[in-house]
Amino acid sequence: MQIVFETRFSFFGQSGWKSQAAADPGLLFDETRLGKRLRYFEEITLTSLASQTDPDFQHLILSSTLMPEPWKIRLRDLCFDMLGERRVGLLFRPEGSAGHIIRDVVAKTFAGHSVAQVVLDDDDAVSCDFVAALRRYADFVTDDPVNPKPYTFVSFPRGYTLGIEDGKLSWLSQRFVPYTNLGLALVAPADTHRNPFLTSHKKIGQRHPSLMVTPLRPFYLRAVHEHNDSRAHKSDEVLNDAQIAGAFDYFPWLKAHFPKATATVATAKKTATG
C-alpha cells in the first residue's frame, strides 16, 4: 500500500474554494505572505510528517510556475531537508485543476499499486502515528468483501483546532467533524479517476463507500490564523495545560510551542516519583 499526502502550496489554479489571495497572483506570491505560509508549512505540516512512526510515505506538493524562482528554491530545499528527496514530489504547474493534475501524477508514478491518497493543507498536521494507522485501515478496506466498488474513502473525524495568534501557536480545542477534509484518505488503485480534490467531502457518506475511524483520540490538527479561510474562532472550550499535555502523545513536536503544558508534564512526573 502506497501512502501519499497531497498538498497545494500557493497553487494558482482551480482547486476548490478560493481565498482573495488565491485568486490574485499579486497577493498569492506576496513575499510577506509567502514567508508566513512557508513558516507554517515547516513548523506544522512538514514537522508532523517528519515525526511519523512509519516513515514509508510520499508527499506530493503542488505549486505554481508563477512562483518567483527564489521561493521555488526555498520550498524545494525545505522539503528535501525535512523529508528527504526520495519522499518528496514537488510539482510546479501552470494554471489548471489541482485535482486533475495530482490524479494524473499519481496514476503515472504509482502505476500497478494500491494508493491511499491523503489531503493535507499546507498549514495542517497529522498525528505522529497517522501513517501507521492509515496503513492498517487501508489494508482492511482494500480486502473488504462486502464493498463492490474498487475504492473507499477513509475519514478521521476527531482532532484538534490549532489557534495561531500573532504568529504563535497559542491554543487547542477539540474537533469532531465526520468526513472532514482533514486527514481524508481515498484508498483505490493508482489509476482511479477519482481524487480527494475532485470530491465534495461533505457528501462522501451519502455518495461513496467509506469507513469512519472513531477511536477516542485525535488524528489531526486544523490550523486557524489570519492567512487562511477558516471560520473557526476561539471559544471557551479551549484545552487547559494538562489537556494540551495529553496531546503531546500524538503531536510530540507541540512541546516546543506550549512550554507551560510541558512544565505541567514535568511537574506531574516529579510528583509521581516523589
Rank of each mutant, 00 (worst) to 15 (best):
L46F: 01
E165Q: 13
P196R: 15
R158Y: 02
P145G: 03
V154P: 11
F248S: 12
R222P: 02
V213R: 01
P218Y: 03
V224R: 04
R222L: 13
E43W: 13
P252R: 10
I44H: 02
S127H: 00
F251L: 07
L134M: 03
S127K: 03
L186M: 15
G246H: 04
L211D: 07
S173P: 00
R86N: 05
D144G: 04
K108S: 15
S51G: 01
T53I: 12
S10F: 06
N240I: 09
L83A: 03
N195S: 14
T262K: 05
L239A: 13
H208I: 04
H227R: 07
D241K: 04
P252D: 12
P178D: 14
L221S: 02
F12Q: 10
L66M: 14
L75P: 11
K255S: 14
L46C: 15
T7G: 07
S51D: 07
D77T: 15
Y220W: 14
T267S: 13
Q14R: 02
A116R: 09
S19G: 13
E95W: 01
A188L: 08
D123Y: 03
Q20T: 09
Y151K: 13
E43Y: 05
A272N: 11
E6L: 07
T152W: 11
V265C: 05
A125D: 12
T32E: 12
S10G: 08
K270E: 14
G246V: 01
S19M: 08
F41Q: 05
G163Y: 14
Q14E: 15
P55L: 10
R175A: 14
V141L: 12
H193Q: 05
P209A: 06
V118T: 14
H201L: 11
Q174N: 15
P178K: 00
V119D: 00
A272L: 10
D121S: 14
F12S: 09
A116I: 08
T273S: 08
F12L: 10
D104V: 12
F80K: 03
R8D: 12
P68W: 08
Q243A: 15
R135P: 04
H59K: 04
S19E: 06
G112S: 12
G96Q: 01
T53K: 13
A247H: 05
H113Q: 09
H201E: 11
A232G: 02
N195V: 09
L221R: 00
F110K: 11
G96K: 01
S170P: 00
K108H: 11
H100I: 15
H201M: 07
D56P: 08
Q2E: 13
V265M: 10
D249C: 04
A242K: 11
L211V: 15
H201R: 10
Y179M: 07
L184N: 01
D122E: 00
S170G: 07
S200L: 08
T65N: 05
R135A: 04
T53P: 02
S51M: 08
L27D: 04
W171M: 11
L83D: 06
C128S: 08
T267R: 13
I3P: 00
L34S: 08
L28N: 00
K270D: 09
T273W: 05
E165H: 11
R231W: 15
V88L: 03
F140E: 06
H208R: 14
F5C: 04
L91R: 04
K260V: 14
A133N: 06
